[in-house]
Simulated scan of single mutants.
Amino acid sequence: MDLGYGKRRVLVVGGSDGIGRAAASLMIGEGADVVIASRSEKNLLAAAEMIHAERATVPGQLVCDVTRPEAGAVLAETVDARWGALDVLVAAVGGSVRADFSALDDQAWLDNYTFNILSTVRAIRSLLPYLEKGSNPAIITMSGAGAKMPYQHQVVSNVHKAGLIGLTKTLALELADRNIRINTIAPGRTLTSLWTNRADMLAAERGSTREEVLQEFAKDIPLGRFAQPDEIATMIVWLCSPLASYVTGQTISVDGGIARGLL
């Protein structure tokens, strides 16, 4: 199936690892011109090498820390210089904090808000003029299963991931008359470095192995296993394609069934 990515201009913020890197690789495989952005130059270079090995193409690379106020200007300058317009923005940024509510001070809340919400707001706001010039423009934000089924001891990220759903739904209405679509992905437990690092830490504390820890956490998932990043990225690629031209303002769960709610 031709997804219509030939000559499509794509920026993946958080594209050096995990779901973002997987989405960038798949889009390049479909014929898109992709730039990946990350605050870590080392991670960007490693991701570019991996994508080159998979697709025989090296993505553009941009060092940009989206938790910094100047990030929006950096993103806009890069898009302006490379293309002058933008077709797809994937904001694959954010993360969770595992702690009891009483252990979280104001700074912990503010830091996670900046990471999960404000970074995405900055990227979208700065790139809207270029998306308006794009062809079938689409935006993806990255929520999580915890927004629909809050995880215990992850209150700060549960709240902010739910906030991204509100942001996406609101912007879908505001941007519709400019023909810009926006949707959010709510992944479940996925084998990214965040989870493997966490599993290694828990394994060291318990005297067990990474595999044993991951198997324990997989018991809550109806499909009985963690997702691979490509399984989440495949949905991103479809949602950003012209084939999904009538889908906007939606939260798509790709979580193996872990979120049990009806909505």
Rank of each mutant, 00 (worst) to 15 (best):
S119G: 13
S119C: 02
T120R: 00
V121T: 05
V121C: 06
V121N: 05
V121D: 00
V121S: 02
R122C: 01
R122P: 03
R122D: 07
R122Y: 07
A123F: 01
A123P: 11
A123W: 05
I124D: 06
I124E: 11
I124N: 09
R125Q: 14
R125E: 06
R125L: 05
S126C: 08
S126M: 07
S126W: 11
L127P: 12
L127M: 09
L127T: 04
L128F: 05
L128M: 12
P129Y: 09
Y130K: 13
Y130I: 09
Y130H: 15
L131G: 08
L131E: 02
E132Q: 10
E132T: 12
K133F: 02
K133G: 02
K133R: 15
K133A: 14
K133C: 05
K133I: 05
G134S: 00
G134N: 04
G134T: 03
G134V: 04
G134M: 03
S135R: 14
S135V: 15
S135G: 12
N136C: 11
N136W: 11
N136D: 15
N136M: 09
N136L: 02
N136Q: 14
P137E: 09
P137L: 05
A138E: 01
A138M: 02
A138Y: 04
A138S: 14
I139C: 06
I139G: 03
I139R: 05
I139S: 06
I139F: 04
I140R: 02
I140Y: 05
I140P: 01
I140A: 10
T141M: 08
T141A: 07
T141D: 10
T141F: 04
M142V: 07
S143V: 10
S143M: 01
S143F: 07
G144P: 00
G144C: 11
G144F: 08
G144M: 04
G144K: 00
G144A: 15
G144N: 09
A145Y: 12
A145H: 04
G146Y: 00
G146H: 01
G146P: 00
G146R: 00
A147F: 00
A147T: 01
K148E: 07
K148I: 12
K148R: 14
M149H: 15
M149D: 13
M149K: 12
M149S: 14
P150R: 08
Y151L: 14
Y151W: 14
Q152C: 07
Q152W: 13
Q152D: 14
Q152M: 10
H153T: 10
H153S: 13
H153L: 11
H153G: 01
Q154C: 14
Q154A: 13
Q154W: 04
Q154N: 13
Q154S: 11
Q154F: 08
